[in-house]
Amino acid sequence: MKTLNKIKILTYLLLIIGIASSCKKNKSIEPEEEEVTTPSTPNNLIKIGETYIVGANAKASVYTDKAFETGYNLIYVAFTDSTDGSALNMGHCTISPLMNMGSMSHGSPVENTSDTISTNGYFRSAVIFSMAGTASQWSLNINFHNHKNGKSGLGSLGVDVAASSPSKFKSVVLALDSNKKVFISLVQPTNPVVGTNNFEITLHQRVNGMTYPFIDQYTVEIEPEMPSMGHGSPNNINPTHVGKGHYSGKVNYTMSGLWYVHLKLYKNGTLISDDQYFEMTLQ
């Protein structure tokens, strides 16, 4: 019978060892997920159209990452030699948008690149469309200084601009800042997710129909809210000015559903706007 005891005890020891070793910590510290940032050139660019740059012996092909809509849009332009079709990677590209409303016309804020060499074949700019319109109304005037032949020229491409829904563009007249007309455009998040998101807006001022300088003097505060429940989210980081009218921070979402991100704008410590918000739906 003693052998039986021994066998039992041995079995126990084996079981303990087995379990202890099977529980050995597999502590592979996984790296934190990369923050979602816009890569310099997305993979799935959509071609909007092309136009000859008359006088520069070049052809411009215009791409974007999503169909044009009101608000902030990235534009990628690739130039080719209109004679031999070879890529033109050196030059100056300047875009100016124009809205032709028949009796009158106006432009909109634009961010042109100062690069003289293309990135992955593209010159990247951004345009803030201030209203929806058809290709016969909105056009992109593309000025290219071709460093291959030293010539400059202009091309024009009509583009369709849809109304963003929910709107990513707000136009507001600020009585407390000498009735300035200010454009607020949402840059990020384009695809909001539960958790932490980069939050970025641009602020531009309409001086006249063709002049829209960025604003870098404001202070921005954000407050997310689920309108149907009335609650917010913790640990948001207010956007701060990061250059060229861009204000960047973090917005947190605790659950999926409809959220509002309320904006407060301050100038020299005075609240000048608190009734604007961006609407976001998280699936």
């Binding site: 379990i19 202890a20 529980c23 539960v194 689920m226 149907s228 429940m229 605790t254 659950m255 999926s256 559903g257 409809l258 739906t281 998280l282 699936q283």
Partner: peptide, 23 residues
């Protein structure tokens, strides 16, 4: 999961999926 009228569904994990092992 909450179902507000005329708005998208709201979803949250009140107890995030987790595993507890014990010996």
């Amino acid at each position: 999961t909450m179902y507000p009228t005329g708005e998208p569904i709201m979803y949250m994990q009140t107890l995030p999926e987790n595993n507890l092992n014990n010996a």
